[in-house]
Design a protein around this nucleic acid. Sequence first.
RNA 1: GGCGCCGUAGCCAAGUGGUAAGGCAGAGGUUUGCAAAACCUCCAUUCACCGGUUCGACUCCGGUCGGCGCCUCCA
Length: 498
Amino acid sequence: MALRLHNTLSGRKEPFTTLVPNVANVYVCGPTVYDYAHLGHARCYVVYDVLVRHLRETGYEVKFVRNYTDVDDKILKRAAERGESPRELSQRFIDAFAEDMARLHCLTPDVEPRVSEHIPEIIALIEKLVERGHAYVSDGDVYYSVESFPDYGKLSHRSLDQLKAGASERLSDTEQARKKHPADFVLWKGGVHEGATWESPFGPGRPGWHIECSAMSMKHLGETLDLHGGGLDLVFPHHENEVAQSEGATGRCFSNCWVHNGFVEVDKEKMSKSLGNFFTARELFERHEPEALRYFVMTVHYRAPLSLDWTLDDEGKVSGFPSIEEAERRVEYLYRTRLRLESIPEARIKEEEAPLPDELGKLRERLHTALDDDLNMPVALAHVADFLRATNELADRAATKKGTVARSAIEAAREGFELLGRWLGLGTETPSDVLDRIRARRARALGLSGEAIEQKIAERAEARAQRDFARADAIRDELAALGVELHDGPNGTTWTIP
RNA sequence: GGCGCCGUAGCCAAGUGGUAAGGCAGAGGUUUGCAAAACCUCCAUUCACCGGUUCGACUCCGGUCGGCGCCUCCA
């Protein structure tokens, strides 16, 4: 078994290889921090989180680098609008981003470089490109000359002629005049930019958009990466330009494998900041458990579009997200199952010889096989579903009169949850906390008070004690009409909001 | 215009040259004072449409229709 990934460079699935055996250098393009992360970002970073976890779980020592782009036109613009320094603004959104990622159970990368802290490396790289004839100074700016790099276009599979036709129409005359080829792109923007100006051999200015990733990735991971990832929208021009810059400067392959995740769509359209049709991760967290978003992301293959659907209320406002609701129910099922497993009494566990169900015993190899095949998360979740069902069977058996279960099965189930946590980032929180939070969130949405419900349950308990089932059922119906479901168990009655 | 992707049950969604994972919804059952949860059983002779290659195609090739993305800031 070995990992195979779809490599954008070749356009097909191929074995994943590393320069040093069992050591993987992974670089993922991080966010430009001028706003909160939206679902598209969440998807992207959950995908690479699963990839990194999978590499680690299957024996790779991974060095995972994900940058923060904190020097950028939009940051400057927004900072100016808000009368804030670019540094303060970006720091705020970096903090918010890190918090969102943590809530999605995304591991913190080993290195999180920022553009603002790598200006010397960027300048050195630009100088090298000028020296090697790949870049030229023009009117205070420095441009990359795409014609100097014969392989330009190899990642996004397009030719300079194609690009020339597309690009030249929309360039302004001044831009056009400064560039030798319409597809040339800026490495260094000359001039003074409020809050973001550095001295350089080419005069004061700041880095262009693409150069920072080349400089930061090569600094932290070396000249050749094992894997470089990002959203599909980065293939061109961002990653194409990174290849040109990096390979132009080193003469070596920049990244052996390029992975790109598909978009999140809304009404069949790409969710993006520029279209304004996005939901931020934190907006969604208000309605749903963050882990439900993570689960939702994993229900679809990473290269396919992930479409977010919603329902509207009478006033035309968004009232819910059915797909995320469904994912949240699966997350509840997962935690409820874990809770049941944990509460199987020791007395019911026997040292008996019993065949171990494959759903329990083969979880590890099943996850391994599924994820090795181009990170097939939907298939991994199918195995998780089988695993959870088998675990519930154990709990059911232990709950019958004189029912016992084999210790080997219980241990396999416990190990299974460990695996889900480490490998998929699922089920790692305290079950009761998650279930309580979900219930509380739904109660709030329905305008229900927990105390009032508990009060009704107490009344009903009294009625039941007196075997007044008519009264008990009336209370059940009354609560059901409000959306509350009651469950009578051996230790009393509990309630949920389905 | 160039490059590329997609079309699988009521819905979501894997898969793929050898006869359709999983989830939701639905039907029946076990259990329950009644419920719920959980579990069990059932639920696509069929993979947009039309041709072709093949012993065999949903899977490969050609075409048609429909939807989308990139080519410009974007995860």
